[in-house]
Design a protein around this nucleic acid. Sequence first.
DNA 1: AAATAAAATTCAAACGTTTGCACAAATTTT
DNA 2: AAAATTTGTGCAAACGTTTGAATTTTATTT
Lengths: 343, 343
Amino acid sequence: MDFHTNVCIFAAKMTTITDIAAALGITPSTVSRALAGNPRVKEETRIAVQKKAEELGYEPNVVASNLRKGQSRIVGIVVPRIHREFFSNVIGGAENILNQAGYNVLICQTLESFDAEIKALKTLKNYRVAGVLLSHAINSMSGKHVKDILGSTPLVQFDRVFPDLPGAKIVGANCEGAYKATMHLIESGYRKIGTLAGFMTSQAYVERLAGYRMALEASGLPYDNSIVFYNTIVRETGYEAALKAIEAGCDALYSSGAFSALGAVDALKEKGFKGADEFGIVATSNEGFTGLMSPSLSTLNQHPFEMGEAAARAFLEGRVDTQVIPMELIIRQSSNKNNKWLK
Amino acid sequence: MDFHTNVCIFAAKMTTITDIAAALGITPSTVSRALAGNPRVKEETRIAVQKKAEELGYEPNVVASNLRKGQSRIVGIVVPRIHREFFSNVIGGAENILNQAGYNVLICQTLESFDAEIKALKTLKNYRVAGVLLSHAINSMSGKHVKDILGSTPLVQFDRVFPDLPGAKIVGANCEGAYKATMHLIESGYRKIGTLAGFMTSQAYVERLAGYRMALEASGLPYDNSIVFYNTIVRETGYEAALKAIEAGCDALYSSGAFSALGAVDALKEKGFKGADEFGIVATSNEGFTGLMSPSLSTLNQHPFEMGEAAARAFLEGRVDTQVIPMELIIRQSSNKNNKWLK
DNA sequence: AAATAAAATTCAAACGTTTGCACAAATTTT
DNA sequence: AAAATTTGTGCAAACGTTTGAATTTTATTT
């Protein structure tokens, strides 16, 4: 059943390589070679072919070409959610690089569903894509399914990666970033620093927690599990955790996410905190809003766009190593003791 | 030259329909029909084929299938920039619907370049996509090129559309939205309302300006071109225009964009304005940051996700009409006279 | 039991390219 | 001038699937 019957009844017959050949009294092979710039075809006929192709409005059928060549110029990108700021930036960066290299991107979102991830990978394999850029759904527990489905298709994992899978990996400097952020709080004079930690099923959050702990221990401060608030990544849970942190006597928080930090700010405002001299916050992820809210949030910029570019380049260059994208600490009002939140 | 030589030397031979046929001593045609659920193949052999397909780990080659069928299950989406909040939401909404209908999306970004738009459309045509969802680059002046390239490929334009192109169009209720926003300012008691207008080469901005004007005239207020600030869509120009608006004695602004409104807020803060009772602002586009900044911005929500869904459905249903997605006025601090900005 | 109808399968071509091999023509070498 | 080389084209098969028409098998009717 054709959905588009009412739109276009007669699909315009497109001119093929064979049409060009017929018009010039030569063979499709020669036309193919001419258009491909093969040096074994005479200059003269190459010109003639190009001219005729232009004249007939020829556009190559890449589906046929891909079938014959057994490979395509499409790279699949699998992300949990396209419209999450982090991922849309990764995609934007990757598309940019891939497009320059003559590739196009086929996008699948898993909406954090493991089953959808499997389906997406199968689809991409069925399209015989040249490679896959993948960030796992949050509830994927291992990379076994990927290997089974993708087989020999080159894979680049980014952000959420599984070490048991071969191939390139692009990850944020989670541990180092968390260390830097926590150290910044310590050096600013905060003394009881809690953390809004994420899900320990995710490597990235595990590493951030580790970095937080390392900074504390390197400074001789105690690591206190009672002020580690696990599974806190959204605004609501950030708010609740922050209330508990205040109760516990914390004077600062390192947050593994940006939205949980937003919730924490809600809690601080509600409790009458007035500035970073009273309570400091540094969040991971330099989401657009963090620089615009009040107080503006100190963050770790993960450079998602650059991460996408790195993933694309890793694919293009056939790399199989792990690259760590440094996180940049951006100090704003929420951790700047000399700066009242509301000026 | 194969980039991936070091990654995978032997491309795993994938099992084909022919392999299944050979294993069962039948013909590829029967296998094809069996897998397609054609009623002309015996129940018994259909089961056998499915079993063997499973056993051999068969995955269909959709490239071959597409070539033979002369159509694909890919829909191309062309946007100026993937990682702009509005577009990433449109894409997210469209992908969701299309995926449910068995389609996948190939994404191209034009980075606002007319040439890149042409290239993207050609690429999509070369892939013989089932349809194209398109939002034009800002410097495209007409839709002629689209018709020439796309031919009979179904087209759905969204947000930035050209009326001279046939096919479905999904647009925001720009005029109505601007009217509503401006009327809200008028009803709130503001008396000299300027506007941060966009580029008049873009239909959307023209309509927003028209809606602004209609509201003024419907209320007996003068339309004063000296407080219409054209080409003002980024933070910097919004800032500068707002300074002029203040100078000109305005007490409110309707902004055609969100970032220009952000710049306007910068200007107001700098000039010592303290609340919406002194100066009101309503912006178009309910970007995420608008609800989180201080003062929170009153906005018109364009419902980009729903717009993407509508575009996808328009394609699936073969519609050729124009759908108008209503804009929802969200009143926040920036236009709420009872609410000091800084509380 | 022969004739007819229905059901299941096979045959072969097609989709538009690409490419190894063969071949002819033009050019260079002996 | 014959032999060897280079240069440019053509031939035909292949990529993996789908599909109209032909054919075989099975079931139903006379």
